[in-house]
């Protein structure tokens, strides 16, 4: 077990190091921060049932607008971060090299997963904490809601990453991995918007399956709900297990 833990850590470091080596990590962080800030300052959240004004129009010390955008921002960001995780390894042939090392499929999957998750956590902190500090300087910010929102966003990101990584493992081309992943996450995000046109029995189930209902209706408002934790963890476990199945299957094929 300790060897597997060690190899997982080794993969984690390797993946994270590779990410930091390229300028893309910095670019992604800066673009994400600028987009989130721009939406918060100038646009608000004019989408769906949840219409929120921008910071200056609303004049309220709250980060709800940023949190409302996060699930949609993840639809673009997470597939971009994960598309190369397996697809590139397969395309460049490094996957076979990886399989020759004494690293189990589970350790590889977990190492890659935690590397992306850690990086995304960093991106979230870098983009959102300075905003929170600024807003707290201008009004009475509810820090409980902010930390609840950040924790919820981190969990949501974990669930999305595990799904995206699994999809990445199914494709050889990065673009296919990106598109399929973005499509699936986009569908999950839009489930909350489509409930008005769905049959009622389906609407209820789809709304519950949507990450939106497990993030914005609870964590983004500072509420810890055990059902949300179960939802996110079950998605993570399912995604990682499927990913491991695919990788292990390929190793022995």
């Amino acid at each position: 077990m300790s060897t597997e833990w060690g190899t997982m850590l080794w993969v984690f470091r390797r993946e994270l190091g590779a990410r930091f080596d390229s300028l893309s990590a910095l670019t992604v962080t800066i673009v994400f921060a600028l987009v989130a800030h721009g939406l918060y300052y100038f646009l608000g959240h004019p989408v769906g049932d949840l219409q929120l004004p921008s910071l200056w129009a609303g004049q309220v010390a709250s980060l709800q607008v940023v949190f409302a955008w996060l699930p949609l921002l993840f639809v673009g960001l997470i597939p971009a971060l994960t598309m190369g995780a397996w697809a590139e390894e397969r395309a460049s042939g490094t996957q076979e090299l990886l399989f020759t090392w004494p690293v189990s499929g589970r350790a590889s999957v977990l190492g890659k997963f935690f590397a992306v998750w850690f990086f995304l956590g960093l991106v979230l902190a870098v983009a959102i904490l300075p905003l929170a500090v600024m807003v707290a300087g201008l009004g009475d910010l509810d820090w409980g809601a902010v930390f609840g929102g950040l924790a919820g966003a981190f969990l949501l990101a974990g669930a999305c990453i595990s799904i995206s990584l699994f999809l990445s493992s199914l494709f050889t081309e990065q673009l296919s991995a990106f598109l399929s992943s973005a499509l699936l996450l986009g569908l999950l995000w839009s489930a909350g918007l489509l409930i008005h046109v769905m049959p009622p029995s389906l609407a209820d189930a789809v709304f519950y399956a949507s990450p939106y209902s497990h993030f914005f209706d609870s964590a983004a408002r500072g509420v810890f709900d055990l059902r949300d934790l179960i939802y996110h963890v079950s998605l993570m476990v399912a995604g990682l297990w499927c990913n491991t199945l695919v990788v292990e299957g390929r190793r022995w094929a």
């Binding site: 509810d142 409980g144 809601a145 930390f147 609840g148 519950y208 399956a209 609870s218 408002r221 500072g222 509420v223 810890f224 709900d225 055990l226 059902r227 179960i230 939802y231 079950s234 998605l235 399912a238 297990w241 499927c242």
Partner: peptide
């Protein structure tokens, strides 16, 4: 099978789990 388990676990959680804590100052959602 895994998808079925995930659906089952979440459905059961939805029906039988009700642990909730509001960490915000407003205390509006619990």
């Amino acid at each position: 099978l895994l998808v079925v388990i995930v659906v089952f676990v979440n459905d059961a959680a939805r029906k039988h789990v009700s642990f909730k804590r509001d960490l915000s100052e407003d205390q509006l959602y619990a």
